[in-house]
Each structure stands twice: as C-alpha cells, then as structure tokens.
Design a protein around this nucleic acid. Structure first.
Lengths: 365, 365
DNA sequence: TTGTAAGCGTTATCAG
DNA sequence: CTGATAACGCTTACAA
C-alpha cells in the first residue's frame, strides 16, 4: 500500500544534479527503475543481476554522482572501513613515513586511515583509543608509548579489532609487531667503531622503558661482549631521543673522569645534539671522538662531519603493519610472520672515522 | 506487547564485561532501568533528566564500558565527526607538521582526521576525494596539486562540506585558504641577496602551475624591480621542489653563458640539490655563488655552509586550517579571515654571505 | 533474476 | 521529566 512512497525519496525524486543532499541508493534505484536491493547488488558487483539491469543501475549511479555512504555501510556491518593509527608524534619523519606506507597499502583496499597524535602523552593515548573505539575502526596500528596497557586490554576485550604494534613491542600481550632490528643495529654500529680500534665506547641510549631503547642498549652490550670488553655502566647515558637530550647526555659523558673515544647514539636527532656539544667543547669529530648513530636522515650526508648512520625503512615498516592488519581482517594478502624485524643498513660516512664519500642522495624512497 | 523485547538486547542483557560485542545504548538503558531515550539524554548531557536518573545511567555506561558508536551517530546525522585531509606527500615535513597542527585542534573538538596521501598524482587526488566523500566527512583540508578541480566542484555541489585549501590557492572558487606569504618571502630573500651587493640573481623556482611556485617567482621579480634591475628570464629555472630537481636546475643555470652570482631557491630540498651541484663543480658557497632559500629545516644550520632560509610555521598553518573548518562548521571559535597569509621569518646563516652564528636549535616547535 | 522487509545504534519528535 | 517510536542508508535473508 505504500510501496510507491518507499521507492521514492521523501523529498521527491532527484532530477537535477544540484540537490543539496548526497544521492542515496533509493535515488539510484528510483532513477534506474529497480528495487533498492537490485541497485545494491548491481553497485557491489554481486551476481544474480542481469547485465542489462546492472548497466542501467550503474548509469543512474554515475548520473546522480552516487557515493555509497561508508557511514551507513559501516553502521550496518558494525565496523567501519577505517584503520586507526596512534603515534606519539606524527611530525617525526619516522612516523610520517610509516603513515605514508600504511595509508598507501590500506587505501588500495578501500580503507581510510584515522590518525591520532598523542603528543607523547599517555593520557592522550587513552583518549585516542576511545575516539577510535567509538569510530569502530576495523584495525589499529599502534606505536605504544605508555607502558600501562590495561585500558587497551579492556577495550580489546569488548571490541574485536585487528591490532598491530609498531616500533615498540607491546609487553604482556601477544601482538603482531613490526619493528626494526634494534639489537642487530646496535651491534653493527658498535662493531664498526670497534673496528676503528676504539675500546672505550660510550652509548647515548633512547628511553630505556621503551623496548626499542632497551634493545639498542642490549645490542651495544652484546657487541662489547663479543669483543671481550667489560661493560661499564658509566659510559651509558639515557637520553630521550631528542636533540636537546642528546646535547645534555653528551655533556654528561664528556664530564666523566674518563670520557669515551667513540659514542654509539640511539637516534640521529640525539647525534645532532651530541655534535653541537662536541663543537662547543672544540672536540674534533671524528678526530678525538668518533660518532655513529641510528636513524639516517636526508641531511645526514650534509652536516659537518657527515653522519655514519643506520638507515631504517620507515615506509616499509608502515606498509608491513598495514599488511598485517589486512591479514588479520582476512583480506587477501600473503601470510606473514608474527614479529617482523626489518633489517637496517649501515651507511658509512665520516663521523665514524671512515673516509665516507659525498653521496648525493641518502634514504631510499 | 513487545516492550520487554525492545528494551532487552536480542542476545540477552549484558552481564559480564567480556561480551564479544561493544555495549550499545540499549544495553546501558536496560542496565540503568530507563528507556533508550532517557539514556541518550543522560549520556549527551541534555536537560530534562533528573540528577538521580543521570547518575544511574552514567554509572551503567561506565560499568559497561559504553562508547557511543560514531558510526551510528554519523549515520543519523548524515555526517561524521571526521575531517579529511588530502596532501600530496604526508612524509614531507611540512605536511606532517600541518597535519599535526590540524589534528591537535580538531581532536579537541571531538573530530578525528582522515588522511589521504595522493603521492602527487591527480588521479589519486580524485580517488581520495571519493573516499572521503563516501565517509561523509564534515570538512576537508585540501592541499591541491591538480589544477583541474571540476570533480571537486561537482562533489561539493551535492555534498555540503566545510572546505579549506592550504599551501596553494584553489583557483576559480572562493575558498577559505591558509598559506604562507610566498610573495613577501621571495621579496625578502631576494632583497637580502641584493643587500649583499649581488646584481645578477638567479631563481630556481617551484612548480609554476602551483600558486605557491608562481607567487614566489612574483616576489622575486618584485624585489628585482624595486632595485631597478631588469628581469632576465634566462636566470629562472623551473624546479619541482625536489632535491634532484634542484640539482638539475642548478646545473642548468651554471651552464648558461652568464651564470648568476647568487640564487634564490624555492625550497630547502632544492637548495640541497643546488649545494651538491656547486660542490661537484668546486664552486665555493657563498664565495662565488650565494644561496638563500625557502623552507627552513632542522638540519639547515648543520650543513656546510649553513643555509640561510625562510622559516615557515607549518604547525600553525595546519592549526589555522582546522580552526577555519570549525568556523565553517559553526563550532565555537573566533571569527577569522577568508585568506590567512602566515608571515615567514628570515633565518640568516652563512650560505648567503653573512657570518651566521652556529645556533643550537632552529625551528620553533 | 528481482523485490520485500528487517535491522544495525542513535537522536529527535511527540505523547504522556 | 520520561517513554515509545520513526528515521537515517545500506545489506541481506527470504520470498516470489
């Protein structure tokens, strides 16, 4: 008795393209003179639609500029075509590149990426989690800062959601994880400085409560052990990844009774701080103190002296995390490991004491 | 006759917190022994709810770990609490910082940010627009690359949506826009090199079909005109913002009959390319050729010679764009201009010929 | 092959 | 102040 009203949009059929309301499936069905079900099937490329009908519907959709509402779809599916990404600082080149990689992979499968920048605050990490939970994201790529993940566990208990940790391991919960091979990287850097003949090698570490920071320290210790050198805790200064932190910790090491002749630094930003400290003290690099660090950057070959650094593949890291999300969501992708550990490559320049060349470009795209 | 079934969730009341389905308003209402309508009012802090009832509802919500579904809300409102951001390269420090600024402002108002990276391809810009349109984003922050915005206009005709352009003007359509003062910046750089006594100043420009590239060229020309110097088109080489482009265009300028004695470069990345070219040719900087560029970077003080550059406030740019979105959405925010032109400040270092100091830090946070 | 109708969670309208 | 109910756009059993 009311089938006419049902197929016809409340505000009348769409005739002009300048209507103030996005076209809906009802509009399309009406224009193509079919039922909504048929229109839906045609749009989604399902079987059991005659070629004629399909063409008709697609033409109508085209004409009306129809864009299926992801909101309605997600609402019905109880899950949005959306993946959240929570990072401590999206303006950091590492996370920005990782985001790019993730977004590249995900957008190809029709997902969009919701970014949340926690500004390094656990409080904001919790807020972000709530926000994304409310959005019913299908998956979450998380670069954890807070070590307390009670609320994360709580959320996941009620919300089935693909989860991949990046950069740091998520302790206390088996989770797909993508990170760089921090232990091996630190071994490589330290071993390289050992090859230059250094025996008193310092380490400006990252934040040690983060697994990446801890792992880098472990690698440094392993390399020393491999060379039969006793570990001296006085040669380790805990930084906070930042340039200012690197500066401060470098000063601390320089002010010890017996300063190192070489330093392994856990980030290039801290290396910059260190170089500034050394410059201030008029200590020649690599002459009096050699330096090698993590996290190569585009400017590493240009500074004085050019930085010997480990190159990480941030884009690949984000892309790998996204792939893992897709795997968990059952999308079509190759099966992958539980913990991806991406290798890093040493880019030898001059700060370590080598005669590094002047290379025009540094990081692979 | 069925009110019992309606207030009680289909799968039975929620008792344990480990249910496999997020709590809904129905669950909360049931637990608080009120109607869904009342529960909704209580949750949303609306009037006409007794304090007792409200407390009861909030307690139930808390217990059940209730997170209102943004999907359902958005679906009902025909608009998500979401703002899209389309940029050509999110791993570029400028866009990354702008994203951070935007996300900071928007998340404080309960919005989340959907990022799309177009990888500089107009095709992907169109796809991103479709994706975000489907998501029924409330607003869109767009850093345009494609000059053809026909489809954008088409989309906007049917979808009411807050829109703010950043970085480049969106020609042919009055749009809120936030950009840096490109003309003034180029004038400043050029004038500074003029003060050093240079009369033959070249320009490695950005992409001239983008308004930022065009404006920078205009500023360069204006400064020359102000100094009564005739414009010589042979001194302008159109780059593409990239390091490789800067290298190539620098070589081109060097290979002309009468090379410039100073160069204004439209981006720091291109300046790096230029410096590498000059180094390759053994041309001392600033001795034989002085250099000054746009887009200061953290590593600018560390390279050899340290770069004289214009500092842009990317974070502020993103934040301003977000504010404009909020204004358009009628949220509570101060009224703002139609076109924001953020000033840039000249950071004098050594590549221009000044005796720039070694500053420990560069960019303001 | 096509059509009908239920239902996803929320808010708004209207009746009590 | 509170409760019942319709509606938002879409997918999907199920019916034809």
């Amino acid at each position: 008795m009311q089938s006419k009203e049902l197929t016809e949009p409340a505000s009348g059929p769409l005739q002009a393209a300048d209507m103030r309301r996005p076209a809906t499936l009802v509009d399309v069905a009406f224009a193509a003179k079919v039922s909504i079900a048929t229109a839906s099937r045609a749009i989604n490329g399902r079987r059991y639609v005659s070629d004629d009908t399909r063409a008709q519907v697609l033409r109508a959709a085209e004409q009306l500029n129809f864009r299926p509402s992801s909101l309605a779809r997600g609402f019905r599916a109880q899950r949005s075509q959306t993946v959240g990404m929570i990072v401590p600082d999206i303006s950091s080149p590492f996370y920005a590149a990782a985001l790019r990689g993730a977004q590249h992979v995900l957008s190809r499968q029709g997902y969009t990426v919701l970014v949340c920048d926690t500004e390094e605050q656990p409080q904001r990490e919790r807020e972000a989690l709530d926000l994304l939970t409310g959005q019913r994201v299908a998956g979450l790529i998380l670069a954890p800062v807070a070590s307390d993940h009670a609320n994360l566990r709580q959320v996941l208990a009620r919300q089935p959601m693909a989860l991949v940790a990046i950069d740091n391991r998520l302790e206390g919960r088996p989770t797909d994880t993508v990170l760089v091979d921090n232990v091996e990287g630190a071994r490589t850097l330290t071993a390289h400085l050992l090859e230059h003949g250094h025996r008193r090698i310092g380490h400006i570490s990252g934040i040690l409560s983060e697994t990446s920071g801890a792992d880098r320290l472990i690698g440094y210790q392993q390399a020393l052990a491999d060379a039969d050198i006793d570990f001296d805790a006085r040669l380790v200064a805990e930084g906070d990844w930042s340039e200012a932190g690197g500066y401060a910790q470098a000063m601390r090491l320089l002010d010890t009774a017996n300063p190192p002749t070489a330093i392994v630094i856990a980030s290039s930003l801290m290396a910059v701080g260190t170089l500034l400290a050394l410059r201030e003290r008029n200590i020649p690099v690599p002459g009096s103190i050699a330096v090698a660090c993590f996290d190569d950057a585009p400017w590493a070959p240009l500074i004085e002296p050019s930085l010997t650094a480990l190159c990480r593949q941030d884009y690949a890291l984000g892309a790998a995390a996204a792939e893992l999300i897709l795997v968990q969501l059952g999308a079509k992708t190759p099966r992958t490991e539980r913990e991806h550990r991406l290798p890093m490559t040493l880019v030898v320049r001059r700060s370590c004491g080598c005669n590094g060349e002047i290379s025009p470009l540094t990081q692979p795209a």
